[in-house]
Amino acid sequence: MTSFRGPRLHQGPRDALSWGILTALLLGWWLCLAPTQLGGPATVAIVDGSSMEPTLRGGDLVIARSQPSYAVGDLVMFRLDYGLVIHRITGGSATAGWTTQGDNREGVDPWRVDQDSIAGKVWFEVAGFGSLLAIVAKNPLRFGIFCAALCLLPYLPWRRRRIPPALAEVLDRSTRELRPVPPSRLERGVLLLSALAAMGALALLSLLGASHALASLQGLIAVGALAWGGGFAVVLSARLYDGRGMPEPGRSACALSGRLRLVEEFPARDVPPRAVRSAVALREVAERCRLPVLHRIDPATDRHEFLVVSDGRGDFIWRPR
């Protein structure tokens, strides 16, 4: 028998723990890896050349963090007129300027590096990862298709759908329900434009980040467009496909549309169904089991009930208030 975990009924403490972990991860990222263009301490670069071999090789991804002070022997990343350079400090001071040299060079570099020009001390490197990022940058369309294919994996039918005999009998006498209020063309168009605006802003932010120009007017405009387009798309999609903002039972019918089957009576079961916390949670169960959702209206009380009947995994019910 295949094990199955139903929806969590009491998610308050777990949700709080999840949000706490996410907040801690974001805070750790900000303190350790946030780029300097966003006010963080880190600068990221891809090694191009052989001056630091064998310590660093071409294609390595290097992350440097700003330090309050530097000393002879530190491997630092600093800015010159033509870009970032990663060499080792061999002498000098913060006031007089630092002398640097590549590990694979016989002589000292012909410049002195000011303290303000140092982006940071090399914190760690990932061998060869920069080459992979360069391939992605040269083939963004293929990478996008690959990521889209990965996102579709959870929706593949990994398990064969098994319909219990009791459910099959009820389905023979059921009626397929359509969405009570289908989205209009205008709503779909606005949702599509908002999503495209968010994706365009995200692409612009990626290009500005690659050119170290996030802290600019274009960067602020891109951030605003991403926040507006992404937020509007999330709110509108939640309203259109989860029924948010609609009164019950229309809200539940919208959230469960596409799987609803109207029945007069639910099938008789030995074990009472397990109550879920929302129509969206019931939809998740139905999608995992690849089963329809039975919809029953009590003729005496006019109360709506939604039920998923699964074979060997228990039944789940949602009763909107």
Rank of each mutant, 00 (worst) to 15 (best):
A166K: 05
L167D: 09
A168E: 11
A168T: 06
L171A: 09
S174I: 03
T175L: 09
T175F: 06
T175A: 10
R176K: 08
R179T: 08
P180C: 02
V181H: 14
V181Q: 15
P183E: 12
P183Q: 07
S184G: 09
S184T: 04
R185D: 15
L186D: 13
R188P: 02
G189A: 10
L191C: 05
L192F: 09
S194G: 04
A195S: 07
L196V: 02
L196M: 10
A197P: 03
A197Q: 05
M199E: 12
A201R: 06
A201L: 11
L202Y: 11
L202S: 14
A203R: 03
A203V: 01
A203S: 07
S206L: 13
L207F: 09
G209H: 05
S211G: 13
L214R: 03
S216R: 05
L217G: 15
L217M: 15
L217E: 15
Q218T: 08
G219M: 11
G219L: 11
A222T: 04
A222V: 06
V223H: 13
G224Y: 15
W228R: 11
G229P: 01
G231N: 09
G231E: 10
G231M: 13
F232E: 15
S237D: 10
A238I: 04
R239L: 14
D242E: 14
D242M: 12
G243A: 14
M246C: 13
E248C: 03
P249T: 00
P249M: 05
P249N: 04
R251S: 14
R251L: 12
S252R: 02
A253D: 09
A253Q: 05
A253K: 01
C254F: 10
A255P: 02
A255W: 03
L256K: 00
L256V: 00
S257A: 12
R259C: 07
L260W: 00
L260R: 00
R261C: 11
L262V: 00
V263D: 03
E264F: 01
F266V: 06
F266N: 08
F266K: 07
A268R: 01
A268C: 04
R269E: 08
R269T: 04
D270H: 00
D270G: 01
P272V: 02
P272R: 02
P273Q: 08
P273F: 07
P273N: 07
R274Y: 10
R274L: 14
V276E: 10
R277A: 15
S278K: 01
A279Y: 01
A279S: 03
V280T: 03
A281N: 02
A281R: 00
L282I: 00
